[in-house]
Write a protein that binds this DNA or RNA. Structure first.
Lengths: 119, 119
DNA sequence: ACCTTAGGCAACCCATAGGTTGCATGTCAA
DNA sequence: TTGACATGCAACCTATGGGTTGCCTAAGGT
């Protein structure tokens, strides 16, 4: 389902996701550390994340290790897409070039994305 | 704040947003039509959308006209960005090319996005 | 063998999100 | 002017989300 939208709606869960990103699997206590809520509450959040597919759980001894699988976020990304011209100025310009009013011919336009390492 | 995440978390609100997209401003009754909930409930949803900045309201006689301003969604888009390599295969490949292991030199890589009219 | 640490489970609490019903008000059209 | 339509407002209901406390079990380290 699209419980994915609800999954990222909570600020605690978003920080959990952030902690899981970039890094090795984290245990429950590791994840709960520093948060202003109890370990049990964190468990509930992690269970929700697991149900939504964003978190995979794997046991190692008495450690419950959590790792992030961001792929379900694709659904949100896809949902945003139709609206994205509203804030992505490059995409907006591209769109204007494509569905300009004056002619009805088939048109294409391209833009380029560059990724580079930190200096 | 980022009540924007909560704003799009509800399925009813997402359909309201979809109806407001592509089109003229819609009145409350127009928006409520067909939905399985009362007009009053729809009002509450629209008020939340307004508070989050996604919907602008303007009166015309006895009509409360609503229009979409998708720009606040940029916050969600920005939040997704760090994770997007997980589902965007093109971006993932690009990332691999940029931070490959063998050399630590400064690197750039580009990809192209094409937009075209429907055939 | 013992204590400490990691975690599960269940009961409970409270605020609020999402919904309803009922009624009042203003505007438009005939 | 009268009736129909568009909306607001307030009270109320209920489920549930997010949190807690308390206790229990299983691994590990020493």
């Amino acid at each position: 389902m699209s419980e994915i939208f609800a999954a990222i709606a909570d600020p605690v869960r978003r920080t959990l996701i952030a902690r899981l990103h970039s890094g090795e699997p984290l245990s429950l206590s590791a994840l709960a550390e520093g948060l202003p809520i109890t370990r049990q509450a964190v468990t509930k959040h992690l269970n929700q994340l697991q149900k939504s597919g964003l978190v995979r759980v794997e046991w190692q001894g008495r450690l419950r290790l959590h790792s992030l699988d961001a792929r379900p976020m694709a659904e949100i990304d896809a949902w945003l897409a139709p609206y994205s011209a509203a804030w992505d100025r490059r995409l907006a310009r591209l769109k204007i070039r494509v569905d300009g009013e004056n002619n009805h011919s088939h048109k294409k336009a391209t833009m380029t994305t560059t990724l580079e390492t930190e200096p």
